[in-house]
C-alpha cells in the first residue's frame, strides 16, 4: 500500500527518457490543439476567406498532428517496457470503447432513442478512455 501511494507522488518512478519523451508529446500536442482551435475560429468567424483559411488551418493542423504522432511513436519505441505495455493496453481500451460505444450509440441514434452522435463524440470518448486505461494499468502492475 505504501509503495502504491509513493508511486503516484514520485515522478522518479519512471525513467528520465520516458519523462523527456512525454514532455515532447505534451509540447507537440499543445501546439497541435492551439493550431486546430485557431483554425476552427478563423473559419467559423470568417477572419480569413473561408477557402484560404481552411487550407492553411488544415495544413498547419495536419503538420503539427503528424509531429505529435511521431513524438508519440518515439515515446512508445523508447519507453520502459512495462510503461509501453500499459500504454498499449490503454490504447486498446480506448479503441475498443470508441468502436463499441460509437457503434452502439449510432444504433440508438438511428432508432431515435438518443440524439445522433457525430464523429467528434466518438473521438472524445476515446480521448477520455485512454487515461482511464493508463490508471488501470498502473494499478494492475503496482
Amino acid at each position: 500500500m505504501e509503495a502504491k501511494r509513493r508511486w503516484f507522488h514520485n515522478p522518479c518512478q519512471t525513467t528520465e527518457r520516458d519523462r523527456r519523451n512525454q514532455r515532447r508529446i505534451i509540447a507537440w500536442s499543445l501546439l497541435w490543439m492551439v493550431s486546430w482551435t485557431a483554425g476552427a475560429l478563423a473559419i467559423g468567424r470568417e477572419w480569413l476567406a473561408a477557402e484560404a483559411a481552411g487550407v492553411v488551418a488544415a495544413a498547419l493542423s495536419a503538420g503539427l498532428g503528424i509531429a505529435t504522432l511521431l513524438a508519440y511513436r518515439r515515446f512508445l519505441r523508447e519507453a520502459d517496457e512495462l510503461r509501453r505495455k500499459i500504454e498499449i493496453e490503454a490504447l486498446a481500451l480506448a479503441f475498443g470503447v470508441g468502436i463499441v460505444g460509437g457503434m452502439t450509440y449510432w444504433l440508438l441514434g438511428k432508432s431515435g432513442i438518443v440524439a445522433e452522435a457525430e464523429i467528434i463524440d466518438v473521438l472524445l470518448l476515446m480521448i477520455l478512455a485512454h487515461p482511464v486505461g493508463i490508471l488501470i494499468g498502473y494499478r494492475r502492475y503496482s
Partner: peptide
C-alpha cells in the same frame, strides 16, 4: 530504484517483476 537504474528501466518495472505481476 538502484536496480532499476542499473537495468535502465523504471522502478515500477522492477517491482512488477519481483512481485510476479509482470514477466520481463
Amino acid at each position: 530504484a538502484e536496480l532499476a537504474r542499473e537495468l535502465d528501466v523504471s522502478r515500477q518495472t522492477v517491482n512488477a517483476v519481483e512481485t510476479g505481476k509482470y514477466d520481463p
